[in-house]
């Protein structure tokens, strides 16, 4: 429960207000293994602590990579960190993406906006071939092309996986789809018996995507999503992130839709 001291080793501004930080433990022996979909509690000294997913490769072993959007006091303080600055780290916490269930299947990764960050770790893992999947498709929706994360890397990866990009608005020559992500998702051929879907993004976007997936007869047990609520302790004790019978920090943040369907549709829960 005591934060380890890490220092910012690299800082990359993705677009205005959103940065990716590589942080490394001051004590070099601090282990940095994690499972895709897990998160760390990052402590901006003097400001506060928030949960942020890992967005780097789980095989990196060279510290952690986190992508942070400046939104509240703490995230702003974290996004303002410069190379060499200190940050407190507790973690990794939570249950990540169920990779064992993806083995041999067609994997559909559906990301919305900043939701690409925790999914990038998953893509790294799937591209490494563990587990081996029969097909990998990534659908990524964002507001504008300028607000897409890791675009160069995704385009590079598109040689090894199917990549479908969609933005709400675009000007000039934009090769992807313009509209909402449910458009290309609706056009995608899905084998309901052999497909598993991983979603992360704004809850409303995931809701609409789930409607499309279930209309295509994909079982609820084959849909997994990463949820977010206000987390404090990250160990299931404080109750801040209680959601129905679950604690997002401990039982999630990745849940199977079949298990959380009852809570997912309750407003203001």
């Amino acid at each position: 429960m005591i934060p380890a001291i890490f220092r910012v080793e690299e800082r990359n501004e993705e677009f205005a207000g959103t940065v990716t930080l590589r942080i490394r433990g001051e004590a070099r022996e601090v282990p940095t293994e994690f499972n895709p979909g897990q998160f760390n509690m990052l402590y901006a000294f003097g400001t506060g602590e928030i949960p942020i997913s890992m967005s780097g490769s789980p095989a990196d072993g060279n510290g952690y990579i986190h992508t942070i959007r400046s939104h509240g006091f703490v995230s702003r303080a974290l996004a303002d960190l410069r190379v060499g600055d200190a940050v407190g780290v507790r973690g990794p916490f939570g249950r990540g993406w169920p990779l064992d269930q993806a083995a041999g299947k067609e994997v559909l990764v559906i990301a919305g906006g900043l939701g690409m960050a925790p999914l990038r770790s998953l893509i790294y893992r799937l591209l490494s071939g563990t587990p081996e999947v029969s097909r990998l498709r990534v659908l990524y929706g964002a507001r504008r092309p300028q607000e897409m994360l890791f675009l160069t890397e995704l385009e590079y990866w598109s040689r090894r996986m199917e990549l479908i990009l969609s933005v709400d608005h675009a000007e000039g020559e934009w090769p992807g789809h313009i509209g909402v992500i449910t458009g290309p998702l609706d056009k995608a051929e899905i084998d309901p018996d052999n497909t598993i879907a991983f979603l992360c993004g704004p809850e409303v976007m995931m809701r609409f995507c789930i409607q499309v997936l279930t209309a295509k007869a994909l079982p609820e047990s084959a849909i997994f999503l990463s949820m977010e609520r206000n987390m404090k302790c990250a160990t299931g004790h404080c109750g801040h992130c209680q959601w129905g019978p679950n604690f997002i920090c401990k039982n999630g943040p990745v849940f199977c839709y079949e298990g959380i369907r009852r809570w997912f549709d309750i407003r203001a829960l």
Partner: peptide, 22 residues
């Protein structure tokens, strides 16, 4: 439906992944 979702500007409503923003 598509137009309504576009108007909702859903990506602007999200917070950093898992970030309460507080």
């Amino acid at each position: 439906h598509t137009t309504r979702v576009q108007l909702m500007d859903v990506y602007d409503q999200q917070k950093t992944s898992l970030d309460s923003g507080k």
